[in-house]
């Protein structure tokens, strides 16, 4: 299997606080990789380093075959990103948002037009395509934001708590979209608080105090810790944490 994300002893320090402490892992093509941890465990910092938003203090990492130190610009071209905060412009219409992000990623006018039409049809947004994004219900916005993160056909998509505040049905639909993307060969790197979502991932890593405390398939982790549910597994690992928010 082709690996798309590799880290080796990746570390980030802020002063004498070590936010991310020598983490090492690999993520393969088309894999759904769950990134779990309590608040303040270092998930977001790790993700920021992989997306080129933050420079590592030490260690190595490559994303989509590009080095995080030397080729952050190349990485940015090949990844998609969606954050926990709703990340579309609410005062732009759906089509204008698509045109803007298409333009930012250097797609041609024709590509943008074709892809927009396909996306609007696929999400069933024909009626509201020319309405301001702010008027959409939250669930639709989240689905739209996810589609937008995939708009320029990235190899990897980073999702930072994408389903925060969304109802269970929309969450389910959202995960169906994630599966569909993974089936097309897109690698999905997702952080989440929901333990049921962790079960949907191919493999998960649980971070505690900046270190990776466990890394395996959900079933593997449960077996290793001798617990019944992902909740118990998380609780057992995170209980020993020294730091919290």
């Amino acid at each position: 299997m082709q690996t798309l994300i590799t880290t080796h002893n990746l570390t980030k320090r802020f002063g004498d606080f070590t936010a991310v402490d020598a983490i090492s892992f690999e993520v393969g093509k088309g894999e759904i990789f769950g990134f779990l941890g309590a608040n303040g465990a270092g998930k977001t910092t790790a993700m920021r380093m992989l997306t080129g938003l933050s420079h590592p203090t030490s260690g190595e990492a490559s994303v989509a075959g590009f080095d995080v130190y030397r080729q952050p610009e190349m990485i940015k071209r090949h990844i998609g990103y969606m954050s926990q905060k709703f990340s579309l412009y609410e005062d732009l219409t759906i089509l204008e948002n698509l045109r803007f992000f298409g333009g930012v990623y250097g797609l041609s006018r024709r590509q943008i037009k074709e892809k927009s039409a396909a996306l609007v049809e696929q999400l069933g947004l024909e009626e509201v395509a020319k309405k301001l994004t702010g008027s959409l219900p939250l669930g639709w916005k989240q689905k739209l934001a996810f589609s937008l993160a995939l708009f320029h056909d990235p190899q990897i998509v980073f999702l930072d708590e994408p389903t925060g505040g969304v109802d269970p049905i929309t969450r389910r639909q959202f995960w169906e979209m994630i599966y569909a993307a993974a089936d097309r060969g897109v690698t999905v790197f997702v952080t989440t608080h929901y333990m049921d979502e962790a079960e949907y991932c191919d493999r998960i890593s649980i971070m505690v105090d900046g270190k990776i405390a466990a890394l395996d398939s959900p079933a593997g982790i449960k077996t290793k810790l001798g617990v019944q549910s992902m909740n118990d597994a998380f609780y057992q690992l995170a209980r020993g944490a020294q730091r919290s928010e």
Binding site: Y81, K85, F86, S87, Y89, F158
Partner: peptide, 9 residues
């Protein structure tokens, strides 16, 4: 609004 993150990545 959090869109700055999106622009920066």
């Amino acid at each position: 609004l959090g869109t700055m993150e999106l622009l920066l990545v």
